[in-house]
Design a protein around this nucleic acid. Structure first.
Length: 195
DNA sequence: TATGAGATCAACT
DNA sequence: GTTGATCTCATAC
């Protein structure tokens, strides 16, 4: 990784989720100086029955209806937190779910938070990622370019794969999960090829 | 390796 | 009352 990578511009997010999602693979996310390289995401478009925004605004998903480049954090299965990046135009209510990172920054702190030694399991899943980075509802609606959050552009083009999203029942066939080909840190392997 | 239960909460029917 | 963008641990094969 480049030692001084560029921060992502705010208008990076002002595009379709289907452009932003694959472009996030290889970017580096840090929360309080802790994080790593994004290796897996999923796109949720507001016209998609699986998206939280599909049925319109509620108290929980209100951030999705706000400005791009902000974090939407929600509680999953009553236990975990899941983090999304809001995309497209303000009010379009589309977002990208962050599913897995390759840990590179503050690995010791992430290990302590997770109570795990295995690097591979530190951030390989949306709930695990949030626990390792210390993401909770306190960061819901937070901008991605203001402390403690920082997001850095990738410096090389990774090889990408795509496939069906994980853990959903509605629109489960849509291939809107994107990953870094061959990464050891994916939450589940991809079957698909290079895109 | 694979499958199942339990944890625990808020949106939605 | 049911379901869900999950994870961990236990038990079975």
């Amino acid at each position: 990784m480049n030692p001084r990578p560029a921060k992502l511009r705010r208008d990076f997010f002002n595009r379709s989720v289907h452009e932003v999602a694959p472009d996030l693979i290889g970017a580096t996310l840090a929360v309080g100086g802790v994080g790593g390289v994004i290796v897996e995401v999923e796109a949720y478009h507001h016209t998609d029955p699986a998206a939280h925004s599909y049925r319109g605004p509620t108290e929980r998903n209100s951030v999705m209806f706000g400005r791009p480049g902000h974090l939407y954090v929600y509680r999953s299965y009553g236990i975990h937190w899941c983090a999304n990046v809001v995309c497209e135009a303000e009010g379009s209510a589309s977002a990208v779910l962050l599913r897995a990172l390759e840990p590179t920054l503050g690995v010791g702190l992430m290990r302590r938070r997770r109570g795990l030694r295995d690097l591979r399991l530190l951030c390989s899943g949306p709930g695990r990622l949030c626990e390792a980075l210390g993401i909770t509802h306190a960061l819901n609606g937070h901008s991605l370019d203001r402390p403690p959050i920082a997001l850095y552009a990738r410096t090389t083009e990774p090889e990408l794969t795509a496939g069906p999203r994980i853990g959903i029942t509605k629109a489960a066939e849509l291939p809107w999960r994107y990953g870094m080909k061959g990464s050891r840190f994916l939450s589940k392997p991809f079957k698909g090829g290079v895109i």
